[in-house]
Design a protein around this nucleic acid. Sequence first.
DNA 1: TATTGTTATACTCTATAACTATA
DNA 2: TATAGTTATAGAGTATAACAATA
Lengths: 155, 155
Amino acid sequence: MPSQQRPARIGFLLSQLGTHAAEVFAEQIQPLGITLSEAGVIRILGRAPGMTQRELATVLGATQSRVVALIDGLERKRLAARTRSTSDRRVQQLELTDQGRDLLPRLRAAAEAQEQAVTKGLSRQQRADLHELLELVAAGQQLDLDVHLGYRRRS
Amino acid sequence: MPSQQRPARIGFLLSQLGTHAAEVFAEQIQPLGITLSEAGVIRILGRAPGMTQRELATVLGATQSRVVALIDGLERKRLAARTRSTSDRRVQQLELTDQGRDLLPRLRAAAEAQEQAVTKGLSRQQRADLHELLELVAAGQQLDLDVHLGYRRRS
DNA sequence: TATTGTTATACTCTATAACTATA
DNA sequence: TATAGTTATAGAGTATAACAATA
């Protein structure tokens, strides 16, 4: 029997299960040779090719210098590429390479595997209920579900 | 309309809402002058005074050197104290100071405020359902609900 | 020899600010 | 002047490994 005196709160459970879910996903993508942050960028660029670095920074909630480092890494891995915009030569437009695009289905498969692992032991109905309630919580928090915030967690 | 093509999965929602919940809690404790990690340590020491550094490392899933830094910080803030064990002088036993113990009710209040903020917009019944489902997920993942894992999230 | 804690060191993620090239 | 991106630098948090004191 642990020393827990009262039942864990929803906020605490969310925080802990969220960390756990991210760890499970990180394990799934580990064979792909990319980090969680990189996976997030690849997913975003897969959906919105041609995005500028500043736009990506806004979507991620990250600084521009962080985006520079992130794209540097993806370029080194030949997964993304920068192109100077012809209309405004200050701007870098971002694209996935063919190799980067090849990762998209593998990221979806990893997400599916994570989903199975995390909801292990829940019935189909329980999964549906949980999904609905989490969407409801997200709606109440005005969160943009299109963005992965995991890496922004602070100490 | 965002570019989301399919509904967010439970794993993704958990990860994102978990980060958000942690951020909300971090805001709540910010006036207390402690970090999330420190709040976790204070909570643990409040429940299990006399714990050794190695035990704390195990509970946190952190390294011993991380615990050294963590306790150094709490000692500097006069919130925790080390005492050499008389039976085994290699061991440091950890205690909260009076000042550290004074934080316990304030941490509980912060957790309560977080809970209200995160579950805003849910009915009493929906909160109960969500709580039950999250406990079920946690049980399936063999997580120790006594420990805050947030700071272990990797990139 | 083994264990507890500590220190030294390094790597990643993050942020701020100074800098460049363009506009 | 203002903006997009870059570089330099610094501060957390994390990990590993070498070390000191004690068992």
